[in-house]
Write a protein that binds this DNA or RNA. Structure first.
Length: 499
RNA sequence: GGUUUCCUGGCCGAGCGGUUAGGCACAGCUCUGCAAAAGCUGCUACAGCGGUUCGAAUCCGCUGGAAACCUCCA
């Protein structure tokens, strides 16, 4: 069956049927982090969202080149100083030392959240020649001008020569833009307040500087993404993504730069993930309204009552659509934790169900049809702009059938072997391949030691129970509970789970 | 001030003109030595006011509230 993937395109403000430029291949660029600080949870949501998107595209069979950059230069601080350099001075470290430290931290965090590494992870400082070239191209096409060693992009001229482009992505009206731009540094050098720097001449206090035809300086705020996406994905590629807060000016200016350099649009589909909220407000490094992932994992944040594991947090994010704001609260996290553990349990149950073809008479039962419909709904949800909430809901409903099968409330013959087989695959595929979750309750690489110990302990308990020695039986159960192992007495014997 | 978006049951959160989304919490029941787990049942909401329509949470208008962007930010 051929599915149609629909993607919400910020450029047009509509959901569109996705059509790659080259059949079977996708080029996707996502704006990565600026490595002058620890990643916070909001960053993680964006990268987890695009990880899910990347995984689903792979699942659909596309060959995806996923490029996500590391920004280690180029962002101005309030006082006009490069952010990387500022961090370096405070900590008395080399700028690249700071970048390296937080890059490593970022990678660690991405691994903890079980995100797949991008195909290419280019660094801004590693692409200075490409950026200088792009400035030259833009100058050559007459869409930028030099002032005292700095080069500025000429927005009014671009708007005039390429009508309808500037402002389209962020939905901005040019006249408003022209009249409302605030006073910024170096405003005096610009011909127009809406213009923006693509090359900045260094001042004596700047550390990270490079030689260029115009001055010793550094590239402008948005240039790196334009240069690197072009280099690795071509002038026009399929998907460009990033956080909602990058829409303007970052992405708008990126579009302008690419147009300015080559006369064509950079990406066909622009995707923007929405913000993670804390206390109803955007999480942000600069205003201190943040919760770090590590605080969440260790339970040391004042905003939460307990610790939450990385996969619980990832599941929590998946319960909402990537384009909706998501308010993080202790209660919501607790709900996610229970939901996540339940889903993991259900998956174990379904994977362990025996597939018995002997009594299969070849007909499709009502239960078959209901279960198949739910699986269909799950993937329809994913096809509809990556609606993970729908997919999870379907999985939960399927879980009801699994539980009833296990509890023998549904006859095994009610579910055809191939449907059961398919259910197993669907669970496995959605939970692990697409959602990118991991079962954290797995005892892991202890070589079955825990398993063996548990069998022994539960055997003792079974003996006690057989002799109606409830005191001993309950003592074992309570002690296990105390170390976080729940014992469940079912119809077909005892099972246990780590909590 | 400008632009845009959002406002769903105790909480989180789907929904894009006509079916109970789902999860968590809560209550009752079944199962159980007791519990837990699981199952079943109940809890049926769409900020307010108008309008369009046979029919609106879903479209339009107004009012109120919130948020994002306009300035580095995922």
């Amino acid at each position: 069956m051929k599915r149609t993937l629909k993607i919400y395109n910020t450029l047009t403000g509509k959901k569109e049927a996705f059509q790659p430029i080259h059949e079977g291949h996708i080029g996707m660029y996502v704006c990565g982090p600026t490595v002058y600080n620890d990643v916070h949870l909001g960053n993680c949501r964006t990268f987890a969202s695009f990880d899910m998107i990347y995984r689903y595209l792979l699942h659909l069979g596309y060959k995806v080149r996923y490029v996500r950059n590391i920004t280690d230069v180029g962002h101005l601080t309030d006082d006009g100083e490069d952010r990387m350099a500022k961090g370096a001075k405070l900590a008395r470290l080399e700028p690249m030392e700071v970048a390296q430290k937080y890059t490593v931290g970022f990678h660690d965090m991405m691994r903890i959240f079980n995100t797949l590494p991008p195909s290419i992870e280019p660094r801004a400082t590693g692409h200075i020649p490409e950026q200088i070239e792009m400035v030259e191209d833009i100058l050559a096409r007459g869409l930028a001008y030099e002032r005292n060693g700095s080069v500025y992009f000429n927005v009014p001229k671009f708007a005039e020569t390429t009508p309808g482009v500037y402002g389209q992505l962020s939905g901005r009206v040019l006249d408003d833009l022209y009249s409302e731009t605030r006073e910024l540094k170096n405003q005096g050098e610009k011909e127009h307040p809406a213009d923006f720097a693509i090359w900045m001449k260094a001042r004596p206090e700047d550390i990270m500087v490079w030689k260029s035809p115009w001055s010793v300086g550094f590239p402008g705020w948005h240039l790196e993404c334009s240069a690197m996406s072009t280099k690795y994905l071509g002038k026009t590629f399929d998907i460009h993504g990033g956080g909602n807060d990058l829409k303007f000016p970052h992405h708008e200016n990126e579009v302008a730069q690419n147009h300015g350099a080559c006369g064509c649009a950079p990406a066909n589909y622009w995707m923007h993930t929405n913000m993670l909220l804390l206390n109803g407000k955007k999480m942000s490094k600069s205003d201190g309204n943040t919760i770090s992932p590590l605080e969440l994992f260790s339970g040391t944040s004042t905003h939460t009552s307990k610790s939450y594991s990385p996969m619980v947090v990832r599941f929590f994010m998946l319960m909402a659509h990537y384009r909706s704001t998501l308010d993080i609260t202790d209660e919501a996290l607790q709900a996610a934790e229970k939901g996540f553990k339940k889903l993991m349990e259900i998956n174990k149950l379904v994977q362990n169900l025996p597939v018995d073809a002997r009594n299969f008479d070849g007909s499709e039962t009502n239960t078959d049809r209901e279960m198949l419909a739910l699986m269909e709904t799950a993937f329809e949800g994913m096809d509809d702009d990556f609606n993970t909430a729908i997919a999870i809901a379907s999985l939960n409903e399927l879980g009801g059938y699994i539980n009833k099968l296990v509890n023998k409330q549904i006859e095994a013959s009610e579910v055809s072997p191939w449907v059961l087989e398919k259910t197993k695959v669907v669970f496995q595929t959605l939970i692990f391949d697409i959602f990118g979750l991991k079962d954290e309750s797995d005892s892991g690489s202890d070589g079955g030691t825990v398993e063996g110990l548990m069998n022994l302990v539960l055997e003792f308990r079974a003996n006690a129970r057989a002799q109606k020695d409830w005191a001993a039986s309950d003592k074992i159960r309570d002690s296990l509970q105390a170390i976080g192992i729940a014992v469940k007495d079912g119809k077909d014997g005892v099972s246990w789970t780590k909590q």
